[in-house]
């Protein structure tokens, strides 16, 4: 039997890698993929919890997360397209209109 903690460590590792990717990549598409990574990391831990607690609520939550992820991906990618159309770039460090 695999201990729960192993899953959680795995989840934490993937989550941290997602954060790292989000914080470092210039390409906004990769940043989006990093977000997906983080969501998957959470999913892993939720499913693991569900399994070890013999409770299906975790699965339900994962189901919803996947739904939201799908919605978020579609909207986010639409935004990227709109952005790309206006700025002709996908590099976030070239978009600094919010500079104070």
């Amino acid at each position: 039997m695999v201990p729960l903690n192993w899953y959680l460590i795995l989840s934490a590792a993937v989550f941290s890698i997602g954060i790292f990717g989000f914080l470092t990549r210039r390409n906004i598409i990769i940043m989006f993929m990093s977000i997906e990574l983080m969501l998957n990391a959470v999913n892993i831990s939720l499913v693991a919890f569900s399994h070890y607690l013999q409770d299906l609520r975790g699965h339900v939550l994962v189901f919803f997360i996947i739904t939201v992820a799908a919605a978020e991906a579609s909207i986010g990618l639409a935004i990227i397209i709109a952005l790309f159309r206006n700025k002709n770039t996908v590099h976030v460090d070239e978009m600094n209109e919010m500079k104070g």
Partner: peptide, 20 residues
């Protein structure tokens, strides 16, 4: 491929991993 401040991101993400 990376922004200039990537070492900071290493520290932050590493810190969060250690915390978790």
């Amino acid at each position: 491929r990376f922004v200039g401040s990537w070492p900071v991101a290493v520290l932050v993400s590493g810190g969060i991993f250690l915390g978790l």
